[in-house]
Design a protein around this nucleic acid. Sequence first.
DNA 1: ATAGTATACCTCGTATATCTACCTATACTC
DNA 2: GAGTATAGGTAGATATACGAGGTATACTAT
Lengths: 111, 111
Amino acid sequence: MGEERVELLKGTLDMLILKITALGPIHGYGIAQRIQQISRDFFQLQQGSLYPALHRLEDRGWLKAEWKVTETGREGKFYSLTRIGRKQLQSEVENWERLTGAVALILQTAE
Amino acid sequence: MGEERVELLKGTLDMLILKITALGPIHGYGIAQRIQQISRDFFQLQQGSLYPALHRLEDRGWLKAEWKVTETGREGKFYSLTRIGRKQLQSEVENWERLTGAVALILQTAE
DNA sequence: ATAGTATACCTCGTATATCTACCTATACTC
DNA sequence: GAGTATAGGTAGATATACGAGGTATACTAT
């Protein structure tokens, strides 16, 4: 089978999580599902990456968490983007674009 | 001044070095200069990142090294891409493109 | 002469982040 | 009653880029 182990580039996960939470409050497990869906199964976010990242983002004040009941009737910790989290997202996206632009310059140099 | 500290995404450095050596044999210090030039000063590769990376790539058989004299009349360790190094570069570029494509899908999702 | 800068190589310790593997618990289906 | 999906979590290993430090040579300016 097309067993492809895809590793995230270290440094992109925070941006992706912030972006997903920018779409509205969502719990951790849901974030992993959304990222997988939208990336057409390219990213398969591991729980050992997800939860530490969420705690990190909350500690930095970029996300805030609230326990609520999900649609399936279970407890879930819903994360939403704070105001400084939104700023952080914006700056990370800008940095990402300049960075991929610079990489593209190098990859495009003719042999 | 526009003092911007730019960190590489962890995982991209090997690809960039391999790409530069694909342009022809070049010594370590020259690789750092080329990367900085081509990226229009966006990347400023640190020597503490550069030399360990070169040794790593040589250990894996992707680069081979040879001492020669530079144009400025000094000793330099010239690196060139091996056959499996070229394959590795190709696969890393493919992965990079699929990865940035997947990130783009997520960043593009409307709020 | 000598002081400073650019070139050229290197190592060590630290910080950070992701992964693998493991654990708990509940709801639903077979 | 067993298995799967959902929901949360932690601990340890690994990788890698960075900062700070070191050596040495060639060239330039004073």
